[in-house]
Amino acid sequence: MEFFVQLLIDGLTLGGMYALIALGFTLVYGILLMINFAHAEMFMTGGFIGYGVLNLLGSESTIATVSDTLPFMSFLQSTQPFFTTTAVGFILMMLLTFGISAVLTGLLGITIERFAYRPLRNSPRLCALISALGMSLFLQNFVLLAVGHRMVFPTPEFLANLDAVPLFGAIRIAPIDLIIFITCLVLLFTLDRFVSKTKLGKAMRATSQDKDAAGLMGININSVIALTFFIGPALGAVAGTFFGLKYGVVTFNMGLFPGIKAFTAAVLGGIGNLRGAMLGGFLIGVLEALASGYISIAYRDVITFAILILILIFRPGGLLGESVVEKV
C-alpha cells in the first residue's frame, strides 16, 4: 500500500509537469489546428531562463561576473543573502524566477508565432509544421551555442535545507515535489477558470470554434492567437524551471522526451481540449510511475504507450475529446 501511494505521488508530480507542457500543445492546436513542434523547446528555453535568473539572484559568482560587465547590476550582491537564506526571500526569488522565465518565454512564443507561423497561416498546414520543426532545431542549437549543452541548475540554499515532508508510514514527499504539485494544480485551475469564465477565455474558445464568426463578433483573431502563444510557452517555462529545480540540471535537448510525453498526453486527453490535456498529463505520469514501479523502468514507455494505443483504439478522439476526430 505504501509502495503504491509513493508511486502515485511520484507519478502525480511528474504528471503535473507533463500537464503544464501538454496545455501548450493543446491550446495551439485548438486555435490553429497546428502541432507546434517547437513547444518542447519553450519548455527547454524556460528552464534555461530560469537557470539564468536564479543564478542572477542567488549565485555569488554569477552576480560578480555580471556586475563586472554591468555595474548597475551590483545591487544584486546585497540582496543575494536575503534571497538564498530566508523563507520570504526564497519565496520571492521563486516567484521572480518563475515569473521572469514565464514572461520572457511567453514573449518568445509570441515572437515565434509572429515571424515563423503567421506568414504561413494561409499556406498548406504542412508548411507551418516544417517551420515549427525548424524553429525547434534553431532554438536547441541557439541555446547550445549561446549557453552550453548542459548547465548545473543551482539549488537554493533554503530549499536544500528543507526536510522531506512525511505523510504517513514511510511515505514522504520531497519539498520540491510538493511545490511542483501544488503549483501545477493552482496553475491548471487558474487556466481552466480563465478560459471558461473570462471574456478573453471566451474569445479564445470562440476563435477555436469558428475564426470567421469570432472575427465578425469583434474579436481580434491575431491578438487571441498571440495570447495563446503567450500562455502555452509561459506554462511550459514554468515546467522547464521546475525540471531544473527538481533534477538539478538543464540541457539543450531536455525538451525531447518530456515534449513527446506531453504531446501524447494532449492527444490522450483529446487534442484541443484543455481539461483533457491536464487529465492526460497526470494519467501518463501515473501510468509511467506504476509501470516502472511494478514492472521495470526499462519497459515503462512500452507499457505506457501500449495502454495509450488501447485507449485511442476505443476512443479515437481521446478521453475527453469528441469520439469522432473532426477538422482533419
Binding site: 473570462t198 471574456k199 478573453l200 471566451k202 474558445r205 470562440a206 470554434q209 469583434g218 474579436i219
Partner: peptide, 27 residues
Amino acid sequence: RLFKEMTVLENVMVGRHVRTKSGFFGA
C-alpha cells in the same frame, strides 16, 4: 455559425467582447 460548444449565454457574451475593455492584465 454559432459557437457550438459554448452555452447560449456564452455565445452572446462573446458578442460583448468588442464593447468591453478589460485585457489580459485585468483577467
